[in-house]
Design a protein around this nucleic acid. Structure first.
Lengths: 336, 336
DNA sequence: AACCTTTCCGGTAACGTTGCCGGAAGGTAA
DNA sequence: TTACCTTCCGGCAACGTTACCGGAAAGGTT
């Protein structure tokens, strides 16, 4: 019967009143006769009227769409953050347009520009590893689109930021090992020159310093990437004499890789050597021994980041804030 | 200087021509003097003109936005699928609005309705475990919004579907074990009454039947959820006499859980008992022994699903198709 | 009775874009 | 010259909605 979805005009015609009146009845309660209002609402329900979002956006000059750019959607951490954002968005009646940069700055810029041409109300971004410049961010701000950076931020950028205090997470993890009596704590770090790697390493170093444990270079090694090539680094620190009695890893995957290597050496975990990971991947609770690890609140980061962005959008405030979430140390068998 | 982004009107005024001419210059090459066209394009670049997506959508009655609903964003498999979609979307100049149902049918319906009120051009959905009815799907189709289901489909629904042949994946996995000489192959299944669980179990059963190996009920057990409570099921099948010489698991996580249990029994993997998982999680290559597993092409599923949806949108075709992608068996140490 | 206030509604313009139609200017052919 | 065609452009309406303004009707005050 009805081909197109009904519009405000259809309602007006059916009730023999003007479109202005229908529009008013549909949103505010002032300047409208309660009876007329009821009649409009009743008919709207009957005809399954839905306001046309596009038309509203055009006249109101706001779309309730928020653009999100992350390095990769299919990573444990970012997918959790996206999950938090998505849940937050539907609560607050916003929509998300999600792009991924694949760690490529060119693609990142392209995505941001595409999002901007969609008239997004705000931009939420975690930058790629390559990204050094905040030019596109400024482009967005010139168009009065508020920007919030989360997790992977550009330190100098002039915008609100939501981060996780990984430094403190690393510090807590290493202090935990110290309390357990470990004296020769090794560290397997991530790729050099990355803020994640450096923050965590600094936590490691400061924990040692705080407890007056000397740093020994032979107990520190770096992986070249975040995945699967940890074995060389592990071999290096395990060859140190005397051998380490604990290892703090950049992530759970490399820690799990190490478990078997350590066992082959005839050492027991945690009796002879304790290990701690980072991330709280699902498997960390399933491997043997279950892995002590630092949990980053990805979901909460996403939720908070979107929350503060929406606040900025709606209050039109322009002051820059810095939010820092804390990690949680999840202690399991590998360090007991 | 310039407060609002420039519009087509600003261009027209600056060049002292009409908006229609500018509009024509910007999109088609007919009915326009090449010189005028060049002048418009030049000025557009200078003023950094960007067409207003919202206004275009209103008059063209298509938004180039595609709605996506998945059970959860932060799952290995779906995040891969979303990654594939996202890459495909930006190539084809579409945008994605992503929602998650959290395995809740009510929330799922709410999300779909919200997406529909955004005038999406198409809907891509993988339904929640609860979902039995396809009413909302029909609602979308009544509004002429094409729907494509992927992975978790409603078998009876009248729409194009993209799935992975898990049955065949399970069959291949179990045949692989049979070829390795295993005679007493156990199966740890997923929650009952779920199509994923049943498809994989059927593959297991058919592989046995094909090779004339009798099914023994004591070698089959089910987990109650997909995560972390596999231990009871494992205990059951390991208590069978004679004990199994191989186990085919519903997923990698439960397989990894089993590794330690089996070792404690004094059994060696793969010499005494071979194991195979499902999913190809990243850790499956990092645990010891590395896990043989069935890889599902999540990224490709996402890419393909979005591709066929866009085809349907642009061709306005209404014929229903069924696409089936194949799994790959990744053989590693745990079954050698 | 004249004036003011309140309540409620309709008309109109606008948001930025596209599509259609009509028409001016110039060229070509009889 | 007239008739016709082509090339190019401008005007107008429309997409569905909201915002603003003006005004009719009803009631209240002096």
């Amino acid at each position: 019967m009805m081909q197109r979805p009904p519009t405000i005009k259809d309602l007006a015609r059916a009730l023999n009143i003007s479109v202005s009146t229908v529009s008013r009845a549909l949103r505010n309660a002032t300047d409208i006769n309660p009876e007329t209002r009821q009649a409009v609402l009743k008919l709207a329900k009957e005809m399954e009227y839905e306001p046309n979002f596009i038309a509203q956006s055009l006249v109101k000059k706001q779309t309730h769409i928020i653009g999100v750019v992350v390095p990769s959607i299919d990573s444990n951490y970012f997918s959790e953050a996206l999950s938090g954002m998505t849940d937050c968005a539907i609560e607050q009646n916003y929509h998300l347009m999600i792009c991924q940069s694949n760690e490529n700055e060119v693609l990142e810029n392209k995505s941001i520009r595409k999002l901007l041409s969609c008239n997004i109300d705000g931009l939420l971004i975690s930058v790629s590893l390559q990204t050094k410049s905040d030019n596109v961010i400024k482009e967005a701000q010139k168009k009065h689109v508020p920007v919030v950076m989360f997790d992977r931020i550009i330190p100098g950028a002039d915008c609100t930021k939501v981060i996780v205090n990984e430094y403190e997470g690393a510090l807590k993890a290493v202090e935990h090992l110290i309390k357990k009596g470990c004296k020769r704590i090794a560290h397997i770090g991530g790729p050099k020159d990355l803020s994640v790697s450096e923050n965590r390493k600094k936590g490691y170093l400061d924990a040692l310093a705080k407890h007056k444990i000397p740093v020994r270079e032979e107990l520190i090694a770096h992986c070249k990437s975040f995945e699967e090539d940890a074995i060389g680094a592990i071999r290096k620190v395990m060859n140190a004499k005397p051998r380490p009695d604990a290892i703090f890893f950049i992530n759970d995957l490399s820690a799990i890789t190490a478990i078997e290597y350590i066992r082959r050496k005839g050492l027991r975990i945690p009796e002879d050597i304790k290990i701690v990971g980072f991330n709280n991947d699902k498997v960390s609770n399933v491997v043997e021994p279950a892995l002590t690890t630092v949990m980053q609140p990805g979901y909460e980061v996403g939720k908070l980041a979107l929350g503060v962005l929406i606040d900025e959008i709606e209050s039109k405030s322009t002051e820059r804030q810095l939010f820092e979430l804390r990690t949680t140390l999840v202690t399991r068998k590998s360090s007991r």
